Simulated assay, not measured.
Amino acid sequence: MPAFTDGGVGRRIAYYRNVTRPRMTQRQLADAACVALGTIRKIERGERGVTDATLQAIAHALGVDPGRLCTDRGAVNTRVHDALPALSAAIATYDAPEDGPVRPLHELRTAVADAARWRVAAQYTRIVRALPDLLTELSRAYHTALAEERAELAGLLVQAYRSADAVAYKFGAWDLSARLVELMRWAVPQAEDPTLSASVAYVRTETFFAARAHVAGLRALEQALDSVPAPTAAPMIAARGALHMRAAVIAGRAHDASAADHHLAQARTLADQVPEGVYCGTVFGPDSVKIHVVSVAVGLGDEHVGRALDVAGQWKPPQDLPAERRSAFYIELARAQLWAGLADDAFESLKVARYIAPQHTREHPWVREDAATLRRLKRADAESLTHFAEWCAAT
C-alpha cells in the first residue's frame, strides 16, 4: 500500500491529538491505534511515511476522517475511486456468491451498523475498504441461511447496499449507484420491514436527482408516501417524515413551491413527535427539517434565498448532528449567500463544510461550481480561495 511521506501528515496528527478532549498523549494514541509508540513519534516528526492502514487506524483513534490527516489533496479521493470496481465486482454475484466463510449473525449486524455509522459521518474511505468483502459475505449468508434468518439478512443486505450506494453516488458513479438502488429494491421485500421499504424509497430519489427528472421523482415519492403504513411508533414516524423531507427537496428542484411547502409542513409536524436521531439509516428530526428548509429554498431559486438566510441567521446545526448532514447545510447555505451577493460569507460556509466533512464537500458538484464562481468574482484572500478551488477541482 502507498505511504504518505509529507511531513504535514505528522503535523496534522499531532494537532488533532492535542485538541482531543481530553488531550491524548503519544502513548495513548499508539495504544488506541495499535501502533508502536516509536512509529507515532517518527510519523509526527516527519521521519517516516504512513501507510493507508496506519493512517486509517490513527484517524479512527483520533475520531476524525482520514482526509483531515492527509495533505495530499487527491490521495483520499483516488483511493475511493480506485475501490469502486471492487464494489461492482461484489454486487455482480449477488445471487450466486462464491463459497467462503460467514461470520455469526451478531457479527454481521455489527459490521453493517459500523458501515451505516461511517456513511452518516461521511467517512467514505472506510466504507470502500470494508464493503466489497462485507457485501459478498452477506450475499453468501443470505443464500445459505435458515428460513427464519433470511428476513433479517435481507434487511442487512439492504442497509449494506445503502452504505455502498452513498459512496457511489457521492463520487459520481451514478450507474453503479442505480444498480445498488435496484438491489435494495430487490432485497427489501424479503426483509418484511415497512420502515426499511420507506428508507429504500427515500434513497431511490438519487436516481431522479442524477437524471434531473425531478417531477417524476416527486411523483415516485408521493406514491411511496401513499403506501407507507400509518405511523404509530418513532421509527415509522421518522420514515414518513424523511420521505416528506425528500419530497420537499425534489419539489423545490421541480420549482413546485406549493408542493415543497406542503411536504415541509408535513415533515415539520412529524419531526415534532420524535427526537433528532438516525432512524433506519436516515437522519430525521427537528434539526434535519430546518436544514431542509435551506435546501428547498436554494432548490426553488435565487428569489427564495431570503428564507435560507433567515434560517441561518437564527440557527446553526448542532455539533452532535451527523457530519454529512451538517456539511450539507453549509454547502447549501453557501449557494444562497453567493446568490445574495455575500461572497465572503459564502466562502466561509464552504470552508466550514470542508472542515466538517472533507470528502463529502470535495465531491459535491455545487462546491466546485460555487468555488469556481467565487474565484472569478473575488480578489481579496485570493491565495486561500485558489487553494480551495484547486482542492475541490473547481474549473
Rank of each mutant, 00 (worst) to 15 (best):
M1H: 14
P2C: 05
Y15Q: 14
Y15E: 14
T25F: 02
Q28L: 06
A36E: 10
G38T: 08
R41I: 06
I43A: 00
Q56N: 13
Q56E: 14
A57M: 03
A59D: 09
A61F: 05
L62E: 04
C70Y: 03
C70R: 05
T71I: 09
G74I: 04
H81C: 04
H81N: 11
A83F: 00
P85V: 03
I91T: 13
A96T: 14
P101L: 09
V102N: 08
E107Y: 06
L108E: 01
L108V: 00
V112D: 00
A113P: 02
A121N: 05
T125L: 11
R129Q: 11
L135W: 05
L138I: 04
S139Y: 15
R140H: 07
A141R: 07
T144A: 12
T144G: 11
A145G: 10
A151L: 04
E152K: 10
L153F: 07
L153I: 08
R162K: 11
A164E: 02
V167Y: 01
A173L: 02
W174M: 11
W174E: 14
L176G: 09
L176P: 09
S177H: 09
A178P: 06
D193M: 07
L196F: 08
A198F: 02
V200P: 08
R204Y: 09
A211S: 11
V215A: 13
P229K: 06
T232W: 07
A242V: 07
M245R: 14
A247G: 14
A248H: 11
V249C: 14
A254Y: 08
S258A: 15
L264C: 04
D272P: 02
V274W: 00
Y279P: 03
Y279C: 01
C280I: 03
S288P: 08
I291A: 12
V293G: 11
V293E: 15
S295W: 13
L300A: 12
V305C: 15
G313N: 07
Q314G: 14
W315M: 01
W315I: 05
P317Q: 01
A323I: 00
R325H: 12
A328L: 14
A328Q: 13
I331E: 04
E332V: 03
R335M: 08
L338R: 11
W339A: 14
D344V: 12
D345M: 03
A346K: 08
E348F: 12
S349V: 07
R354C: 11
Y355R: 15
Q359E: 15
D370R: 09
T373S: 09
R375F: 10
E383T: 13
E383V: 13
L385Q: 04
A389S: 09
